[in-house]
């Protein structure tokens, strides 16, 4: 909930990221259609910077490419084009250059494997934990990779990790199936913490949990951020979760980031027509907070064949004109927000 000002060198920065997934076709199909493989344009040119201590929320509908972007930032997918920077230096051969310590003080540059700096918390704690390993084994593996050789030391660290996520030593010998969904997500979080990373990508960390348990995990993530000076990229489709946890928000649509800005600014004065529609679609409990619905027509177009120009032009109700269909708008700075929409461009 703290709002660190984005300044200095970003912790993680991505520039011009594209990630395309070819869908292989059989040679016969290629011959008949006289076309090559079809390509899913999951991420289609994204720039994003995340500064130390920030929590950036990434929102978008399913198929918008937010998970793919998160995985590229965690180095789980190599990007088709574009680069990932850590402390301003490109990540090459999975090695990053660390130039600052956790408190932001400059240190002598040092090459560190990228996985030691970045960890991921996955959406589904039922499938992301190995069912045949005990919690102790699950948590020890990253510790071994961190270079902790003494088994007694590892045991002690497993205990501390479990305690920091609200479990205890008793749980170390159990298997994942013996835990509830909320507890399993805590184990996933502990596993990510075991590497003592600087940056955590949390992909829908609470969406598979019961409503009453979601809040526990959200509060846990916030507490750990302070305790371990972490930087988060939180991917979620639930806008109220994003609002609650993020200091800055990026809205994604069909492989592109259409708007970014500080959470409060973006939620109080959304600029992009898509952000407006998204915010208006949130069901509200309290009557006085309900806003006029902006009903979007149709569905998100297929990333197999994204429309040219602005990706949103097929559903946009406030199109400027032909330019929306022909040219992708650049990012315009409006106040503290950046918006990729011709409405805010030079009216020529």
């Amino acid at each position: 909930m703290s709002e660190p000002q984005p300044n200095g060198v970003p912790l993680i920065e991505v520039r011009g990221i594209q990630k395309h997934f070819p869908i292989p076709r059989s040679p016969l199909a290629k011959l008949l259609s006289r076309r090559g493989d079809s390509i899913v344009h999951a991420v289609n040119g994204v720039d994003l910077s995340i500064w130390p201590g920030e929590t950036v929320g990434l929102v978008g509908e399913s198929g918008s490419g937010k998970t793919t972007l998160g995985r590229v930032m965690a180095n789980l997918y190599p990007p088709t084009a574009g680069e990932v920077f850590f402390h301003g230096e490109p990540v090459v051969n999975d090695m990053a250059t660390v130039k600052m310590d956790r408190s932001g003080q400059p240190v002598a540059p040092k090459q560190v494997p990228y996985y030691r700096l970045t960890q991921v918390i996955f959406q589904n704690p039922y499938s992301s934990l190995n069912p045949r390993k005990t919690v102790r084994e699950i948590l020890s593996t990253p510790l071994t990779h961190r270079g902790i050789r003494s088994s007694r030391e590892r045991e002690e660290m497993v205990r501390m990790l479990l305690e920091s996520v609200g479990l205890n030593e008793r749980h170390a010998g159990s298997y994942p199936h013996q835990f509830s969904g909320g507890q399993r997500q805590r184990i996933s979080i502990a596993r990510a913490l075991a590497m003592h990373p600087r940056f955590i990508v949390a992909d829908e960390p609470v969406s598979s949990l019961d409503v009453s348990v979601q809040a526990q995990v959200i509060n846990l993530l916030e507490r750990l951020q302070k305790e371990f000076s972490l930087t988060y990229l939180i991917i979620a489709h639930d806008l109220s979760v994003i609002y609650y946890i993020s200091s800055r928000v990026a809205v994604m649509y069909l492989g592109k980031i259409v708007e970014t800005g500080p959470t409060l600014d973006l939620f109080t004065s959304p600029l992009h027509p898509y952000t407006k529609a998204l915010l208006a679609a949130i069901p509200r409990v309290r009557k006085e907070r309900r806003t006029e619905r902006i009903l979007l027509r149709g569905d998100i177009p297929s990333p197999l064949n994204p429309p040219g120009g602005c990706p949103f032009h097929t559903r946009c109700q406030v199109k400027v004109g032909r330019i929306c269909e022909q040219q992708m708008p650049p990012n315009f700075q409006v106040g503290k927000q950046q918006v990729a929409c011709w409405l805010y461009g030079d009216p020529h």
Partner: peptide, 13 residues
């Protein structure tokens, strides 16, 4: 339930 209010209100699990 996280709510969208200004200022942000803490959630109580």
């Amino acid at each position: 339930r996280p709510r969208i209010t200004i200022p942000k209100e803490p959630i109580a699990p």
